[in-house]
Simulated scan of single mutants.
Amino acid sequence: MVYSAGRLRYRGQYIAATCGRGGVTDDKREGDGATPRGTHSIAGLFYRLDRVAAPSDWAQPIYPGDLWCDDPQHPAYNLLCRAPLEASHEQMRRADPQYDVVLITDWNWPEASPGRGSAIFVHQWRRPGASTAGCIAMARGDLLWLAAKAAPGTRLIIR
């Protein structure tokens, strides 16, 4: 899978996609809104079982109380956690559909360096062409197709 200039290529198919509002960077930092350049891997697949069918047999459900810690000072930084969590975090079970299906990348994971950035996901965009906080985003149909085809370890090259 290769992401560049607003598109992603996988298995010969091109998919319209967006990256972080801070562009693509070689020096990713927590909160900079940028997408880290380089070769990464798909490390996980999560889905909202109350909204979509499992896109693949390795997909894991997102349950109420699932969180992703984005506090560089917390021991669970850049990991899936459960509520309650007093540290800064993202809700994995969102009211909007952006995280109905989420491919997790191995950026700064599973052993995170504090401040190097967290939660670099591949997910549904808010609207066509809308930037993210550092993730890769695309249309729901394209994301469902990708989630059904990709496997753990699938390379994600961001340039």
Rank of each mutant, 00 (worst) to 15 (best):
M1G: 11
M1D: 03
M1P: 06
M1Q: 06
V2Q: 13
Y3S: 02
S4F: 05
A5S: 15
A5L: 12
R7T: 13
R11G: 14
R11I: 01
I15T: 12
T18I: 04
C19F: 11
G20T: 03
G20R: 03
G20A: 06
G20M: 03
G22V: 01
V24C: 01
D26N: 12
G33T: 09
A34S: 14
T35R: 02
T35H: 00
R37V: 00
G38C: 00
T39M: 08
A43M: 11
G44F: 03
G44K: 11
Y47V: 13
L49F: 14
L49R: 15
D50M: 04
R51P: 07
A54P: 00
A54F: 05
D57V: 02
Q60S: 09
L67G: 02
L67P: 10
W68I: 06
D70R: 11
D70M: 03
D70S: 06
A76L: 14
Y77S: 05
R82M: 00
P84Q: 03
P84K: 09
L85Y: 12
H89R: 10
E90M: 11
M92Y: 10
A95G: 14
A95D: 15
D100I: 01
D100P: 05
N108G: 06
S118L: 10
G129P: 07
A130C: 12
R140Y: 10
G141K: 05
D142R: 07
W145G: 08
A147M: 12
A147F: 04
A148G: 14
A148P: 03
A150P: 00
G153Y: 05
T154E: 12
R155L: 12
R155G: 00
R155K: 15
R155E: 11
I157K: 05
